[in-house]
């Protein structure tokens, strides 16, 4: 291995044998990875059960708290200040499509019960929500709300609907090569090899991942916004999500060693270059050769 290992800053492997992300471990024998996964799954299941219980209790409590308060919105003393502010924002900007109690409005907007603060963070932070008009898909644009307001909205929706919460820690803390394999298997089909994005059916599109923040990518995987499938934590573990984010952002930021990347679009851009630049320059050249001195 070369002395300058660019991976070392992304993935410290202090002498421990690196996990090989081969595509063969399905060979009947459960690999070490599988065992590790099962172990962590055990832990997760306990956490999940606890979370489910907590959610149930919370929902019950909320229901009893909220249903009488349905007519008179004020006076629910259990609400924190952030939730109250979030409610105000919600009733101003979201209620017409998502309903008074996050239940959604048919043909206008989906229910927000169970989407969690992660979904709110992704949708509002990328500017997809609030929606300007109903289209094939919601385009990302500059966020309408400030970070503080987004926090308030998140608190409100989390408190009233429940669902996935924001992750914490270093979201790029994952194995680069493993992230690449997972990205190509799960994400590249829509978002392209290099996260360029791509067209979907009937005017919809998978957005480009260029310049997306780690938290945006994480919450998108966790919640499956719009047409994107959901990648829950039992499907792609938090570690695997972090690996994918590490890969996406590494690829996004790395230089093109072979010259201008021409959008990293592959043959379409290359074909344009050879016809416009290659053939163009040479035609100019032979015109010049043919002209009289």
């Amino acid at each position: 291995m070369s002395t300058t290992n660019p991976q070392s800053d992304a993935q410290p492997d202090g002498g421990s044998p690196r996990v090989r992300w081969s595509r063969r471990p399905a060979d009947g024998t459960p690999a070490a990875a599988a065992r590790a996964r099962r172990r962590s799954k055990h832990r997760r299941r306990v956490v999940n059960v606890a979370g489910l219980m907590a959610a149930l209790v919370l929902t019950g409590a909320l229901y009893s708290a909220l249903s009488p308060a349905y007519a008179t919105n004020e006076g629910s003393g259990s609400e924190s200040a952030a939730e109250a502010a979030g409610r105000e924002l919600y009733e101003r900007s979201c209620i017409s499509c998502h309903g008074e109690n996050l239940e959604g409005v048919p043909t206008r907007g989906p229910s927000l019960v169970g989407v969690g603060e992660a979904a709110v963070y992704f949708q509002v932070h990328t500017g997809r929500m609030p929606l300007v008009r109903q289209e094939a898909d919601a385009p990302d644009k500059p966020a309408v709300f400030s970070d503080e307001e987004i926090d308030q909205l998140m608190a409100y929706v989390q408190a009233n609907g429940g669902g996935p919460t924001l992750p914490s820690g270093d979201l790029r803390d994952g194995d680069l090569a493993q992230g690449g394999e997972l990205f190509r298997l799960n994400c590249a089909s829509c978002h392209n090899f290099v996260g360029q994005g791509g067209a979907l059916s009937s005017g919809k599109a998978a957005p480009s991942l260029e310049g997306s923040s780690a938290l945006e990518i994480y919450t998108a995987m966790l919640t499956g916004p719009e047409n994107m499938p959901v990648f829950g934590d039992n499907q792609l573990t938090p570690d695997e999500k972090r690996a994918i984010i590490n890969y996406v952002q590494t690829i996004d930021n790395q230089a093109d060693p072979g010259g201008a990347g021409v959008g990293r679009m592959g043959p379409v851009a290359e074909g344009l270059v050879i016809w416009v630049v290659g053939i163009g320059v040479l035609l100019f050249g032979i015109f010049w050769m043919g002209s009289k001195a």
């Binding site: 471990p25 990875a33 394999e181 298997l185 959901v230 990648f231 829950g232 039992n234 499907q235």
Partner: peptide, 21 residues
């Protein structure tokens, strides 16, 4: 892809996983 089996509780509604024999 990494050889781990799948339980019905592992996936969220609206999800897709590529699986192999």
């Amino acid at each position: 892809d990494d050889g781990t089996p799948i339980r019905p509780g592992d996936q969220q509604p609206g999800s897709l996983e590529t699986v192999f024999p």
